[in-house]
Design a binder for these strands. Structure first.
Lengths: 335, 335
DNA sequence: ATAACTTAAGGAAACGTTTCCAAGGAGTGG
DNA sequence: CCACTCCTTGGAAACGTTTCCTTAAGTTAT
């Protein structure tokens, strides 16, 4: 049987209120009794019971982290950022994979509610109406990471996706490219899909380049869709000289396809990705990309959540800086 | 104020024992009262308090997952496997990054003890004497994943590293290679280090190839160490024709280095990796590798832990099947 | 020396469950 | 119709803390 506060009190010959006080560093306990208690604790190998504590003080020091899929390249580093600051403040994280399924999201929410999580970090690329309702009905602080809701009703940490895409496309243009294809995300994705397409278009327009809808290929951010869309691109009569992909994984899929077909990167196609995951760095040729500050997104999101829990006032939505990382998958194209 | 069981009891006009019974699907409660209670629950939007429940029944349905670094390519899929089966059985996982630091491991253990985790999954590549002691003193079931202790005192889920390395080197030999370098892990790593080196040596010896210690390059499994060791290999007077790396990341580092220096893969060097992470698949040329069943390791580990918690008897150590995945980074070498 | 404070300490109550025990009522067999 | 059993139900106790209210003892001022 593991020792409780009561055992400690008995052993130390004090009341149990006193033990609790030394445990929590309350003042108004004499050095003498404090020592007695501490000795008893050591002797009994007493270990506090956080469950009992939580029941009483209605706070668990646990944070729920809802994520589409931890095994998908983009997310682990966000989680690392979260856990580091959580750990720093003595919080724990409970990880829940949602696979972007409503049912799993719902289950996760119920679980977090029952287990009395002090807060929730929701990482995703979409958040629909029903989910929004559920978030609002639940009585736990929530911060969105890498996504936001349409009306800015929730706290969020994101980057400016449109601007980032703009910079990416613009960079290609600066390098002299005029025929630039886009490997886009999903049209229905208001977060990583639409804004990146808009940024791309905007860059073209501002540089007086015609936007050709036939140059935009929609995919699901994954390798295969990059690979397969590249196949289509290679069949185009007017092949682009550069490609902007809405994810590194698609970019790499496209590059692999091209190389396999005998083309060279960057000589035949300049390719720029998006996200800045490890793969972009380790791929050969190393991929030029827009790096999202994933670690910071996690860390910042967690810090924000902690502040909300404490009752501090914080800005509703914060936008972090992205970064254009120039590597060798892109090349100047003289005409 | 959120409703409690007491409120439900009052509203339904029954005793609180009864409410508890319908909540837990105990038999011996009439359909009639059951309905009354259910109605009251709905009306009050009652939500059970898992904390209070845990305090009473001394079980939390939470599992601690200790991992070196979730942002490091090898681990996320293990965690996914874990979470999937945890979720299936209504368990939650608490994720703790240890960075292989004793102090962080210790802190994590304390936390899990206080929060009364029902079990612990420890993922790592080493486990030293002190940690072992701590594991033993803590009173929580533990399963090791991707590692084991020297005396098999703990439950574990692993692969046969030596045999896997043997197969890898052997495959290279089958392809006609005779001068095979190894990008090894750490000599002090009894798990992913030593056995893989032994397997490599064994394959050479069985095929009457001289083991040249100068052909073994020690690293830390990371890209950079693969890259830098490749630099050394390229300076060798008798360059190997094939390379076996103890991790995919090192393999890719080496391949990148070689390609950057103007060599071709697999024409100039056949390269085989180890782990079977996504990177090996997405790299170009796709990397031949030994695939560790990471998802299954996590899933199996969690299942095992659950059985132990339930009191079932399970085998101490289970070895999962690895897989040699042949891709285009290796090539037959006629003499 | 007494009154008025201050400080340290003890312990009951409460947090929201589950479980066990006792008891009422209904059904069954003789 | 009585004794017995079985089923359903109510409620107290317990899980291990924290917190608040008391009280005892010590200190200071008058």
């Amino acid at each position: 049987m593991t020792a409780t506060i009561k055992d400690v009190a008995k052993k130390a010959g004090v009341g149990l209120g006193t033990v609790s006080r030394v445990l929590n560093n309350h003042p108004s306990v004499s050095e003498e009794t404090k020592k007695k208690v501490l000795d008893a604790i050591k002797e009994l190998e007493y270990n506090p019971n956080a469950i009992a504590r939580s029941l009483k003080i209605k706070t668990t020091n646990s944070i729920g982290v809802m994520i589409p899929d931890i095994s998908s390249g983009f997310y682990p580093e966000i989680v690392r950022g979260i856990e580091d600051v959580a750990n720093k403040y003595k919080y724990n994280i409970m990880l829940l994979n949602t696979d972007l399924k409503r049912e799993k999201e719902k289950q996760a929410l119920i679980m977090l509610k029952e287990k009395k999580a002090d807060g929730i970090l929701f990482i995703s690329n979409t958040i629909d109406y029903k989910l929004k309702k559920e978030f609002q009905s639940i009585n736990i602080p929530i911060v969105l990471i890498a996504t936001k809701d349409d009306n800015d009703e929730f706290y969020s940490v994101t980057i400016d996706n449109e601007n980032a895409a703009f910079q990416a496309a613009n960079y290609l243009i600066e390098l002299g490219h005029k025929n630039i294809a886009m490997l886009a995300g999903k049209k229905e994705d208001p977060n990583a899909g639409v804004p990146r397409i808009n940024g791309y278009k905007k860059a073209l327009i501002e540089n007086n380049i015609n936007v050709d809808e036939g140059n935009i290929f929609y995919g699901d951010y994954k390798f295969k869709s990059g690979y397969e869309n590249m196949l289509k691109i290679l069949k185009l009569k007017k092949k682009p000289t550069a490609i902007f992909a809405a994810s590194d994984t698609m970019a790499v899929g496209a590059a692999s396809c091209a190389m396999q077909m005998g083309y060279r990167i960057p000589d035949d196609f300049s390719i720029i990705g998006f996200d800045g995951i490890e793969l972009s760095e380790y791929f050969y040729p190393p991929l030029t990309t827009i790096k999202q500050p994933r670690y910071e997104m996690g860390a910042k999101g967690m810090e924000k959540l902690l502040k909300i829990i404490r009752g501090d006032t914080v800005e509703k939505s914060t936008e972090l800086e992205f970064q254009l990382i120039k590597r060798s998958s892109c090349k100047f194209r003289g005409d």
